[in-house]
Design a protein around this nucleic acid. Structure first.
Lengths: 110, 110
DNA sequence: TATATTAATCGTACTTTTACGATTAATAAG
DNA sequence: CTTATTAATCGTAAAAGTACGATTAATATA
């Protein structure tokens, strides 16, 4: 039905999925990398850096902001974006916890 | 248009997005966690463990198999699944590389 | 005040994802 | 050979995601 049955999963599973979902588009990955690279906050340069329409970038920025990975400051007519350090760290630890699950020494599927 | 403009992004960005996309559903997160937990490979138990229809689970398993995170062995009338250790490690290092980008000591957005 | 600039939002078209019942294919058991 | 079991695939409905032009809102400048 196009929408996941989140009720049947626990909070951690849904959180991991939500965070992964926001990383599941190359444009958003590129935006985050660009924000890390420029360090100083950036606004509409993102539109120039990435080759997508202004409306599309704005939409992606909204999603990144909604999960809390970035924050934006209004500066005159433009808006300055940057990584949200605390929330980035939270995401990191949540994903690390999942990614670092122990691999079985022997798997039955050879 | 529903499909991402992958041409305008580099390979790393597209790979990160692809891997994130497969983790972007709680059912697939739950399946992976269950495979880690059971260690020994599992087949249709996954359908019982998670409360989704057999066809839906089969679809999710297909996606996990397509990105290489799991593999399946036919055993009689049932199929045994497990984590693909090498590919899991590859995904881990790719995502770690991205997640561990350095945070700026001072961000201009206060 | 009028005009320019910047970014968010609206409306829309199209694609992909999610979910499930029904069917099919393959193997095991009688 | 027939029947049961298991899982993949098909078909389909509904929801969500992607992208962009056009519009709107807010601020800066002349």
């Amino acid at each position: 039905m196009g929408s996941a049955k989140t009720e049947i999963f626990n909070q951690q599973q849904n959180e991991i999925a939500s965070l992964a979902k926001v990383l599941a588009h190359p444009a958003r990955v590129a935006i985050l990398q660009y924000l890390f690279k420029t360090n100083a906050c950036v606004c509409g340069d993102i539109v120039d850096e990435i080759g997508l329409a202004q409306a599309t970038i704005s939409q992606h920025l909204k999603e990144l902001k909604q999960v809390g990975l970035i924050k934006g400051n209004v500066e005159g007519t433009s808006v300055c974006y940057c990584i949200h350090p605390e929330n980035w760290k939270k995401m990191k630890s949540l994903l690390h916890e999942f990614l670092d699950l122990d691999l079985a020494q022997n798997s039955c599927c050879s």
